[in-house]
Amino acid sequence: MTSATVESRRPAPGGTAGPRRGRPVPAGVLGALGLLTLVAVLELVPRLGLVDDRFLPPFSSMVSALVDEAGTPTFWTALGQTLRGWAIGLAVALVAGVVLGIVIGSLPVVRAATSSTIEFLRPIPSVALIPLAVLLWGNDMKSTLILVVYATFWQVLLQVLYGVRDVDPVARETARSYRFSPLTTVRTVTWPTALPYVMTGFRLGAAVALILEITGELVIGTPGLGKEIGVAQSSGAVPQMYALVIVTGLIGVVVNLVARWGERRVLRWHPSIRAEVG
């Protein structure tokens, strides 16, 4: 969700800071230490009685709850439902955002005519749609899907619009002089320029889609991990609740890693990535 700014594609000025003195501990080791510290704190704070263990069970009991959960088919069904809703919502939002973004961005008149509407609709919080969705579809998967698509669509659309605006005017004029058909222009001129932005939109959208998917499940009660968290909470199964929250965090980490990996892979040819590889 970070670095939504357009300038994130520029390499950081000054490059990487070299070690100044001594031999630094490798970042990986420090990071592992950080995670260990977190685990130790989570284990010790309830054990020492600093926090009521009905509110914060020790880390070990979260883990054993997680192991128990992983043995039940309910957990895996819920995980599958969450991932399916996430993937469908993200895919719909990506296709809609890219197609509309290229159409709107390529036609100056359409762009000017829609910009006020986009500026108005974009900040409307997607959760405003929850009551309407519940009314129309109850706790069917569609209710959550509409939230996911709405929230993710704007992330993608906005990035695509930035990307299309970034097209080199000379390249565009050249394409026009050579009488490229609109489709060829999109394929050979617009798309390569917009692709890094599309991938940024994809990365941001993937994270937002996951948040809204799990939020929808939690609040509306559509099937998935979010609903399981709600069930664990209302039945007072605190360790299970923490275990499921940890799972959602892990899914989030994996989604971020996959999105970043996909970005690098698709943009292998792009100067911003080539420079990083060296």
Binding site: M1, T2, V25, A27, L30, G31, A32, L33, G34, L35, T37, L38, A207, L210, I211, I214, T215, L218, V219, G226, I229, G230, A232, Q233, M241, L244, V245, T248, G249, L250, I251, G252, V253, V255, N256
Partner: peptide, 20 residues
């Protein structure tokens, strides 16, 4: 370097699940 993985994890937790 010490905090990065921890922060990445906390950032990845969808905030609404913290409500319960």
């Amino acid at each position: 370097a010490y905090l990065e993985p921890v922060l990445e994890f906390f950032r990845a937790i969808p905030p609404p699940v913290l409500v319960p």
